[in-house]
Nucleic acid binder design. Structure first.
Lengths: 219, 219
DNA sequence: GTCTATACATCGATAGAC
DNA sequence: GTCTATCGATGTATAGAC
Protein backbone atom coordinates (compact mmCIF):
# COMPACT_ATOMS: atom_id res chain seq x y z
CA UNK A 1 0.00 0.00 0.00
CA UNK A 2 2.74 2.40 0.98
CA UNK A 3 4.77 1.02 -1.88
CA UNK A 4 1.77 1.57 -4.08
CA UNK A 5 1.68 5.28 -3.26
CA UNK A 6 5.39 5.56 -3.94
CA UNK A 7 4.93 3.91 -7.32
CA UNK A 8 2.06 6.18 -8.08
CA UNK A 9 4.02 9.35 -7.47
CA UNK A 10 7.00 7.86 -9.26
CA UNK A 11 4.88 7.36 -12.37
CA UNK A 12 3.18 10.69 -11.94
CA UNK A 13 6.52 12.46 -11.85
CA UNK A 14 7.75 10.72 -14.97
CA UNK A 15 4.47 11.49 -16.70
CA UNK A 16 4.80 15.13 -15.70
CA UNK A 17 8.24 15.34 -17.27
CA UNK A 18 7.13 13.81 -20.52
CA UNK A 19 3.83 15.68 -20.82
CA UNK A 20 5.45 19.03 -20.09
CA UNK A 21 8.11 18.40 -22.68
CA UNK A 22 6.05 16.90 -25.49
CA UNK A 23 2.48 17.89 -24.74
CA UNK A 24 -0.46 15.54 -24.50
CA UNK A 25 -0.36 14.47 -28.13
CA UNK A 26 3.40 14.10 -28.37
CA UNK A 27 3.75 12.04 -25.22
CA UNK A 28 3.45 8.24 -25.28
CA UNK A 29 2.73 5.80 -22.50
CA UNK A 30 5.80 3.86 -23.56
CA UNK A 31 8.13 6.78 -22.94
CA UNK A 32 6.52 7.61 -19.63
CA UNK A 33 6.90 4.01 -18.50
CA UNK A 34 10.52 3.94 -19.60
CA UNK A 35 11.35 7.16 -17.77
CA UNK A 36 9.62 5.86 -14.66
CA UNK A 37 11.60 2.64 -14.94
CA UNK A 38 8.50 0.46 -14.99
CA UNK A 39 6.39 -1.43 -17.47
CA UNK A 40 3.79 0.11 -19.70
CA UNK A 41 1.00 -2.01 -18.20
CA UNK A 42 1.66 -0.57 -14.78
CA UNK A 43 0.60 2.86 -15.88
CA UNK A 44 -2.82 1.50 -16.70
CA UNK A 45 -2.95 -0.37 -13.42
CA UNK A 46 -2.54 2.89 -11.51
CA UNK A 47 -4.24 5.37 -13.82
CA UNK A 48 -6.50 3.31 -16.10
CA UNK A 49 -5.90 5.38 -19.23
CA UNK A 50 -3.69 8.00 -20.79
CA UNK A 51 -6.50 10.52 -20.50
CA UNK A 52 -6.84 10.02 -16.78
CA UNK A 53 -3.11 10.15 -16.25
CA UNK A 54 -2.94 13.35 -18.23
CA UNK A 55 -5.79 14.86 -16.25
CA UNK A 56 -3.95 14.21 -13.00
CA UNK A 57 -0.80 15.78 -14.35
CA UNK A 58 -2.62 18.74 -15.81
CA UNK A 59 -4.58 19.43 -12.63
CA UNK A 60 -1.34 19.34 -10.67
CA UNK A 61 0.25 21.87 -13.00
CA UNK A 62 -2.75 24.18 -12.88
CA UNK A 63 -2.23 24.25 -9.12
CA UNK A 64 1.41 25.03 -9.61
CA UNK A 65 0.82 27.70 -12.23
CA UNK A 66 -2.26 29.45 -10.88
CA UNK A 67 -2.86 28.20 -7.38
CA UNK A 68 0.26 29.66 -5.84
CA UNK A 69 -0.11 32.92 -7.68
CA UNK A 70 -1.52 34.50 -4.55
CA UNK A 71 1.64 33.65 -2.63
CA UNK A 72 3.61 35.86 -4.97
CA UNK A 73 1.63 38.97 -4.17
CA UNK A 74 3.69 41.04 -1.76
CA UNK A 75 2.14 42.48 1.38
CA UNK A 76 3.15 46.09 1.19
CA UNK A 77 1.43 49.41 0.63
CA UNK A 78 4.39 50.97 -1.17
CA UNK A 79 3.40 50.47 -4.79
CA UNK A 80 6.96 50.72 -6.07
CA UNK A 81 8.19 48.19 -3.57
CA UNK A 82 5.20 46.07 -4.45
CA UNK A 83 6.05 46.04 -8.14
CA UNK A 84 9.70 45.34 -7.44
CA UNK A 85 8.84 42.34 -5.29
CA UNK A 86 6.19 41.01 -7.60
CA UNK A 87 8.32 41.15 -10.72
CA UNK A 88 11.25 39.56 -8.96
CA UNK A 89 9.23 36.80 -7.33
CA UNK A 90 7.22 36.07 -10.40
CA UNK A 91 10.22 35.81 -12.70
CA UNK A 92 12.05 33.62 -10.21
CA UNK A 93 9.10 31.31 -10.01
CA UNK A 94 8.72 31.11 -13.79
CA UNK A 95 12.37 30.36 -14.32
CA UNK A 96 12.23 27.66 -11.66
CA UNK A 97 9.67 25.83 -13.82
CA UNK A 98 10.75 26.84 -17.30
CA UNK A 99 8.61 24.34 -19.20
CA UNK A 100 5.40 25.09 -17.38
CA UNK A 101 4.25 28.35 -19.00
CA UNK A 102 4.62 27.09 -22.56
CA UNK A 103 2.93 23.83 -21.70
CA UNK A 104 0.03 25.66 -20.06
CA UNK A 105 -0.55 28.06 -22.91
CA UNK A 106 -0.46 25.36 -25.56
CA UNK A 107 -2.46 22.73 -23.71
CA UNK A 108 -5.15 25.09 -22.51
CA UNK A 109 -5.64 26.21 -26.08
CA UNK A 110 -6.13 22.57 -27.09
CA UNK A 111 -8.01 21.54 -24.00
CA UNK A 112 -11.29 23.31 -24.50
CA UNK A 113 -14.05 23.17 -21.95
CA UNK A 114 -12.61 20.55 -19.59
CA UNK A 115 -9.44 22.49 -18.95
CA UNK A 116 -11.45 25.70 -18.75
CA UNK A 117 -13.57 24.50 -15.87
CA UNK A 118 -10.55 23.33 -13.93
CA UNK A 119 -8.83 26.68 -14.28
CA UNK A 120 -11.88 28.71 -13.38
CA UNK A 121 -12.31 26.57 -10.30
CA UNK A 122 -8.73 27.17 -9.26
CA UNK A 123 -8.52 30.85 -10.06
CA UNK A 124 -11.81 32.01 -8.61
CA UNK A 125 -11.08 31.16 -5.01
CA UNK A 126 -13.22 33.40 -2.89
CA UNK A 127 -13.19 36.23 -5.35
CA UNK A 128 -16.09 37.11 -7.56
CA UNK A 129 -14.28 39.32 -10.01
CA UNK A 130 -11.07 41.28 -10.36
CA UNK A 131 -7.63 39.84 -9.73
CA UNK A 132 -5.88 40.37 -6.40
CA UNK A 133 -3.62 42.81 -8.22
CA UNK A 134 -6.50 45.02 -9.22
CA UNK A 135 -7.09 46.43 -5.77
CA UNK A 136 -3.44 47.35 -5.30
CA UNK A 137 -3.35 49.25 -8.58
CA UNK A 138 -6.63 51.00 -7.96
CA UNK A 139 -5.59 52.08 -4.51
CA UNK A 140 -2.36 53.58 -5.83
CA UNK A 141 -4.34 55.48 -8.43
CA UNK A 142 -6.73 56.82 -5.80
CA UNK A 143 -3.83 57.82 -3.59
CA UNK A 144 -2.33 59.73 -6.47
CA UNK A 145 0.90 57.73 -6.29
CA UNK A 146 0.56 56.66 -9.89
CA UNK A 147 -1.27 58.14 -12.84
CA UNK A 148 -4.63 56.67 -13.89
CA UNK A 149 -4.11 53.43 -15.76
CA UNK A 150 -6.44 50.69 -16.89
CA UNK A 151 -5.80 47.94 -14.32
CA UNK A 152 -6.47 45.04 -16.71
CA UNK A 153 -4.06 46.36 -19.31
CA UNK A 154 -1.42 47.27 -16.78
CA UNK A 155 -1.51 43.83 -15.22
CA UNK A 156 -1.44 42.29 -18.68
CA UNK A 157 1.66 44.33 -19.47
CA UNK A 158 3.37 43.31 -16.29
CA UNK A 159 2.61 39.62 -16.74
CA UNK A 160 3.54 39.72 -20.41
CA UNK A 161 7.02 41.05 -19.74
CA UNK A 162 7.62 38.39 -17.11
CA UNK A 163 6.21 35.38 -18.93
CA UNK A 164 7.04 35.93 -22.56
CA UNK A 165 10.82 35.67 -22.29
CA UNK A 166 10.42 32.27 -20.66
CA UNK A 167 7.87 30.98 -23.16
CA UNK A 168 9.70 32.43 -26.12
CA UNK A 169 13.14 31.47 -24.96
CA UNK A 170 13.90 29.05 -27.81
CA UNK A 171 12.96 31.71 -30.36
CA UNK A 172 14.54 34.65 -28.60
CA UNK A 173 17.89 32.99 -28.09
CA UNK A 174 18.07 32.17 -31.78
CA UNK A 175 17.41 35.77 -32.79
CA UNK A 176 19.43 37.41 -30.04
CA UNK A 177 22.32 34.99 -29.62
CA UNK A 178 23.98 37.19 -27.00
CA UNK A 179 21.05 36.69 -24.64
CA UNK A 180 20.89 33.75 -22.22
CA UNK A 181 17.41 34.17 -20.82
CA UNK A 182 17.81 31.99 -17.75
CA UNK A 183 21.26 33.15 -16.73
CA UNK A 184 21.27 34.88 -13.35
CA UNK A 185 23.02 37.94 -14.78
CA UNK A 186 20.45 38.47 -17.48
CA UNK A 187 17.56 37.87 -15.10
CA UNK A 188 18.81 40.47 -12.64
CA UNK A 189 19.36 42.98 -15.40
CA UNK A 190 15.95 42.20 -16.82
CA UNK A 191 14.19 42.69 -13.50
CA UNK A 192 15.75 46.15 -13.24
CA UNK A 193 14.82 47.10 -16.79
CA UNK A 194 11.22 46.00 -16.37
CA UNK A 195 10.88 47.86 -13.12
CA UNK A 196 12.46 51.01 -14.54
CA UNK A 197 10.14 50.97 -17.55
CA UNK A 198 7.04 50.26 -15.54
CA UNK A 199 7.75 52.64 -12.73
CA UNK A 200 8.61 55.56 -14.96
CA UNK A 201 5.67 54.56 -17.07
CA UNK A 202 3.09 55.00 -14.33
CA UNK A 203 4.55 57.25 -11.64
CA UNK A 204 2.39 60.24 -10.99
CA UNK A 205 5.17 62.82 -10.93
CA UNK A 206 6.02 62.22 -14.57
CA UNK A 207 4.41 64.50 -17.18
CA UNK A 208 1.15 63.19 -18.62
CA UNK A 209 1.34 61.48 -22.00
CA UNK A 210 1.03 63.75 -25.03
CA UNK A 211 -2.31 63.61 -26.81
CA UNK A 212 -2.28 61.73 -30.09
CA UNK A 213 -1.67 63.85 -33.16
CA UNK A 214 -4.97 62.78 -34.66
CA UNK A 215 -6.97 64.53 -31.96
CA UNK A 216 -7.08 65.31 -28.26
CA UNK A 217 -9.10 62.20 -27.47
CA UNK A 218 -12.84 62.06 -27.29
CA UNK A 219 -15.15 60.18 -24.91
CA UNK B 1 0.29 20.52 -64.44
CA UNK B 2 -1.55 23.71 -63.62
CA UNK B 3 -4.18 21.58 -61.96
CA UNK B 4 -1.39 19.90 -60.09
CA UNK B 5 -0.18 23.19 -58.66
CA UNK B 6 -3.72 24.10 -57.64
CA UNK B 7 -4.10 20.79 -55.85
CA UNK B 8 -0.79 21.26 -54.16
CA UNK B 9 -1.71 24.64 -52.70
CA UNK B 10 -5.16 23.34 -51.85
CA UNK B 11 -3.61 20.58 -49.77
CA UNK B 12 -1.00 22.92 -48.35
CA UNK B 13 -3.68 25.31 -47.15
CA UNK B 14 -5.67 22.57 -45.49
CA UNK B 15 -2.51 21.24 -43.90
CA UNK B 16 -1.68 24.71 -42.63
CA UNK B 17 -5.06 25.01 -40.94
CA UNK B 18 -4.77 21.66 -39.21
CA UNK B 19 -1.13 21.98 -38.19
CA UNK B 20 -1.65 25.46 -36.76
CA UNK B 21 -4.62 24.29 -34.78
CA UNK B 22 -3.37 20.96 -33.48
CA UNK B 23 0.38 21.11 -33.82
CA UNK B 24 2.55 18.56 -35.59
CA UNK B 25 1.77 15.72 -33.21
CA UNK B 26 -1.94 16.37 -32.91
CA UNK B 27 -2.53 16.66 -36.64
CA UNK B 28 -3.35 13.61 -38.77
CA UNK B 29 -3.08 13.06 -42.48
CA UNK B 30 -6.67 11.89 -42.45
CA UNK B 31 -7.98 15.17 -41.12
CA UNK B 32 -5.87 17.19 -43.52
CA UNK B 33 -7.14 15.14 -46.45
CA UNK B 34 -10.72 15.54 -45.30
CA UNK B 35 -10.41 19.29 -44.92
CA UNK B 36 -8.80 19.52 -48.35
CA UNK B 37 -11.61 17.44 -49.77
CA UNK B 38 -9.28 14.83 -51.24
CA UNK B 39 -8.07 11.35 -50.44
CA UNK B 40 -5.39 10.53 -47.93
CA UNK B 41 -3.18 8.94 -50.57
CA UNK B 42 -3.03 12.15 -52.51
CA UNK B 43 -1.17 13.90 -49.75
CA UNK B 44 1.63 11.39 -50.12
CA UNK B 45 1.58 11.73 -53.88
CA UNK B 46 2.30 15.45 -53.57
CA UNK B 47 4.38 15.58 -50.40
CA UNK B 48 5.72 12.05 -49.88
CA UNK B 49 5.37 12.06 -46.08
CA UNK B 50 3.85 13.86 -43.15
CA UNK B 51 7.28 15.15 -42.17
CA UNK B 52 7.84 16.73 -45.56
CA UNK B 53 4.38 18.24 -45.61
CA UNK B 54 4.93 19.65 -42.17
CA UNK B 55 8.27 21.11 -43.18
CA UNK B 56 6.66 22.95 -46.08
CA UNK B 57 3.95 24.34 -43.83
CA UNK B 58 6.41 25.27 -41.12
CA UNK B 59 8.77 27.02 -43.50
CA UNK B 60 5.86 28.99 -44.90
CA UNK B 61 4.84 30.12 -41.42
CA UNK B 62 8.35 31.10 -40.48
CA UNK B 63 8.24 33.40 -43.48
CA UNK B 64 4.94 34.79 -42.33
CA UNK B 65 6.03 35.24 -38.75
CA UNK B 66 9.60 36.48 -39.15
CA UNK B 67 10.11 37.31 -42.79
CA UNK B 68 7.70 40.20 -42.92
CA UNK B 69 8.82 41.58 -39.62
CA UNK B 70 10.92 44.13 -41.46
CA UNK B 71 7.83 45.46 -43.22
CA UNK B 72 6.40 46.45 -39.89
CA UNK B 73 9.26 48.74 -38.98
CA UNK B 74 8.09 52.29 -39.60
CA UNK B 75 10.28 54.71 -41.54
CA UNK B 76 10.37 57.69 -39.27
CA UNK B 77 12.93 59.43 -37.09
CA UNK B 78 10.40 60.49 -34.48
CA UNK B 79 10.83 57.80 -31.86
CA UNK B 80 7.40 58.32 -30.35
CA UNK B 81 5.73 58.12 -33.71
CA UNK B 82 7.89 55.11 -34.45
CA UNK B 83 6.73 53.27 -31.35
CA UNK B 84 3.11 54.17 -31.98
CA UNK B 85 3.25 52.80 -35.52
CA UNK B 86 5.18 49.72 -34.60
CA UNK B 87 2.91 48.68 -31.75
CA UNK B 88 -0.20 49.29 -33.82
CA UNK B 89 1.07 47.48 -36.91
CA UNK B 90 2.50 44.60 -34.97
CA UNK B 91 -0.64 43.99 -32.95
CA UNK B 92 -2.80 44.21 -36.05
CA UNK B 93 -0.63 41.67 -37.79
CA UNK B 94 -0.67 39.30 -34.83
CA UNK B 95 -4.43 39.48 -34.47
CA UNK B 96 -4.83 38.85 -38.20
CA UNK B 97 -3.11 35.48 -37.69
CA UNK B 98 -4.15 34.62 -34.16
CA UNK B 99 -3.04 30.99 -34.22
CA UNK B 100 0.42 31.67 -35.58
CA UNK B 101 2.30 32.95 -32.50
CA UNK B 102 1.24 30.09 -30.26
CA UNK B 103 2.00 27.54 -32.94
CA UNK B 104 5.45 29.04 -33.53
CA UNK B 105 6.43 29.14 -29.89
CA UNK B 106 5.31 25.59 -29.22
CA UNK B 107 6.62 24.01 -32.38
CA UNK B 108 9.99 25.73 -32.30
CA UNK B 109 10.45 24.45 -28.78
CA UNK B 110 9.77 20.92 -30.04
CA UNK B 111 11.56 21.30 -33.34
CA UNK B 112 15.14 21.46 -32.18
CA UNK B 113 17.99 21.97 -34.59
CA UNK B 114 16.08 21.67 -37.87
CA UNK B 115 13.69 24.48 -37.05
CA UNK B 116 16.54 26.48 -35.58
CA UNK B 117 18.49 26.53 -38.82
CA UNK B 118 15.46 27.60 -40.80
CA UNK B 119 14.75 30.49 -38.48
CA UNK B 120 18.32 31.68 -38.36
CA UNK B 121 18.40 31.64 -42.13
CA UNK B 122 15.27 33.73 -42.33
CA UNK B 123 16.06 36.19 -39.59
CA UNK B 124 19.66 36.93 -40.43
CA UNK B 125 19.03 38.52 -43.81
CA UNK B 126 21.89 40.84 -44.50
CA UNK B 127 22.47 41.65 -40.86
CA UNK B 128 25.27 40.22 -38.82
CA UNK B 129 23.94 41.12 -35.40
CA UNK B 130 21.42 43.36 -33.71
CA UNK B 131 17.81 43.60 -34.75
CA UNK B 132 16.58 46.38 -37.03
CA UNK B 133 14.97 47.90 -33.97
CA UNK B 134 18.28 48.22 -32.17
CA UNK B 135 19.55 51.08 -34.29
CA UNK B 136 16.37 53.11 -33.80
CA UNK B 137 16.56 52.76 -30.04
CA UNK B 138 20.25 53.50 -29.88
CA UNK B 139 19.91 56.60 -32.01
CA UNK B 140 17.13 57.96 -29.79
CA UNK B 141 19.33 57.39 -26.76
CA UNK B 142 22.25 59.20 -28.40
CA UNK B 143 19.97 62.08 -29.40
CA UNK B 144 18.82 62.37 -25.83
CA UNK B 145 15.18 61.85 -26.78
CA UNK B 146 14.88 58.91 -24.45
CA UNK B 147 16.77 57.87 -21.38
CA UNK B 148 19.43 55.18 -21.64
CA UNK B 149 17.83 51.76 -21.88
CA UNK B 150 19.14 48.33 -22.68
CA UNK B 151 17.97 47.82 -26.28
CA UNK B 152 17.56 44.04 -26.00
CA UNK B 153 15.40 44.31 -22.89
CA UNK B 154 13.40 47.20 -24.23
CA UNK B 155 12.61 45.36 -27.45
CA UNK B 156 11.78 42.26 -25.45
CA UNK B 157 9.36 44.30 -23.37
CA UNK B 158 7.71 45.79 -26.42
CA UNK B 159 7.33 42.46 -28.19
CA UNK B 160 6.15 40.75 -25.02
CA UNK B 161 3.29 43.17 -24.50
CA UNK B 162 2.17 42.75 -28.11
CA UNK B 163 2.49 38.98 -28.43
CA UNK B 164 1.51 37.62 -25.04
CA UNK B 165 -2.14 38.66 -25.06
CA UNK B 166 -2.60 36.83 -28.36
CA UNK B 167 -0.79 33.69 -27.26
CA UNK B 168 -2.36 33.69 -23.85
CA UNK B 169 -5.83 34.60 -25.02
CA UNK B 170 -7.51 31.32 -23.97
CA UNK B 171 -6.08 31.68 -20.47
CA UNK B 172 -6.57 35.41 -20.11
CA UNK B 173 -10.18 35.38 -21.15
CA UNK B 174 -10.92 32.72 -18.56
CA UNK B 175 -9.33 34.75 -15.78
CA UNK B 176 -10.53 38.16 -16.91
CA UNK B 177 -13.97 37.36 -18.34
CA UNK B 178 -14.67 41.02 -19.12
CA UNK B 179 -11.81 41.12 -21.61
CA UNK B 180 -12.28 40.15 -25.27
CA UNK B 181 -8.71 40.24 -26.52
CA UNK B 182 -9.45 40.39 -30.22
CA UNK B 183 -12.32 42.88 -30.08
CA UNK B 184 -11.50 46.12 -31.92
CA UNK B 185 -12.40 48.20 -28.85
CA UNK B 186 -10.05 46.34 -26.56
CA UNK B 187 -7.25 46.37 -29.12
CA UNK B 188 -7.45 50.13 -29.59
CA UNK B 189 -7.52 50.70 -25.85
CA UNK B 190 -4.62 48.30 -25.44
CA UNK B 191 -2.49 50.03 -28.05
CA UNK B 192 -2.95 53.31 -26.19
CA UNK B 193 -2.14 51.77 -22.81
CA UNK B 194 1.02 50.12 -24.12
CA UNK B 195 2.19 53.28 -25.78
CA UNK B 196 1.48 55.39 -22.70
CA UNK B 197 3.39 53.00 -20.47
CA UNK B 198 6.32 52.66 -22.82
CA UNK B 199 6.59 56.31 -23.72
CA UNK B 200 6.42 57.57 -20.16
CA UNK B 201 8.74 54.75 -19.26
CA UNK B 202 11.57 55.88 -21.49
CA UNK B 203 11.09 59.57 -22.33
CA UNK B 204 14.07 61.61 -21.41
CA UNK B 205 12.19 64.47 -19.74
CA UNK B 206 10.88 62.19 -17.04
CA UNK B 207 12.83 62.02 -13.76
CA UNK B 208 15.43 59.25 -13.59
CA UNK B 209 14.41 56.10 -11.72
CA UNK B 210 15.08 56.16 -8.01
CA UNK B 211 18.06 54.11 -6.86
CA UNK B 212 17.17 50.85 -5.16
CA UNK B 213 16.89 51.00 -1.39
CA UNK B 214 19.67 48.47 -1.02
CA UNK B 215 22.24 50.84 -2.42
CA UNK B 216 22.88 53.61 -4.95
CA UNK B 217 23.83 51.15 -7.69
CA UNK B 218 27.36 50.16 -8.44
CA UNK B 219 29.14 49.60 -11.79
C1' DG C 1 -3.68 12.47 -61.08
C1' DT C 2 -6.91 10.33 -58.09
C1' DC C 3 -9.04 6.75 -56.02
C1' DT C 4 -9.57 1.99 -53.19
C1' DA C 5 -7.43 -1.37 -50.78
C1' DT C 6 -4.03 -2.76 -47.98
C1' DA C 7 0.50 -3.26 -45.80
C1' DC C 8 3.18 -1.94 -41.87
C1' DA C 9 4.24 0.38 -37.56
C1' DT C 10 2.87 2.27 -33.24
C1' DC C 11 0.03 3.28 -29.64
C1' DG C 12 -3.36 2.58 -26.00
C1' DA C 13 -5.32 -0.91 -23.49
C1' DT C 14 -6.27 -5.64 -21.61
C1' DA C 15 -5.52 -10.65 -20.34
C1' DG C 16 -3.21 -13.65 -17.78
C1' DA C 17 1.03 -15.70 -15.63
C1' DC C 18 3.78 -14.99 -11.63
C1' DG D 1 1.75 -5.37 -7.73
C1' DT D 2 4.43 -6.23 -11.75
C1' DC D 3 5.60 -8.42 -15.67
C1' DT D 4 5.04 -10.60 -20.77
C1' DA D 5 2.24 -11.23 -24.51
C1' DT D 6 -1.17 -9.74 -27.34
C1' DC D 7 -5.39 -7.49 -29.13
C1' DG D 8 -7.73 -3.77 -31.47
C1' DA D 9 -7.65 0.77 -33.14
C1' DT D 10 -5.39 4.30 -35.44
C1' DG D 11 -1.92 6.41 -38.20
C1' DT D 12 1.57 6.64 -41.94
C1' DA D 13 2.69 4.99 -46.14
C1' DT D 14 2.48 2.18 -50.46
C1' DA D 15 0.50 -0.83 -54.37
C1' DG D 16 -2.27 -1.02 -57.95
C1' DA D 17 -6.69 -0.18 -60.56
C1' DC D 18 -8.72 3.47 -63.19
Amino acid sequence: MNKGVARETQILNAATDVFLEKGKDGATMQEIAARAGVNKALLHYYFRSKDRLYEKVFARQVDEFFGRFAELIPQTDDIREFLESFVSNYIDRLVAHPQLPGFMLWEIKQGGATAGKLIRKKVFRGRKSGTPLDSVIQKAVRDGTIRPVDPANFILNLISMCIFPVVGRPVIEKILPEVRITSPEFLEKRKKEILALVWNGIRADAPPPEPARSGPGRE
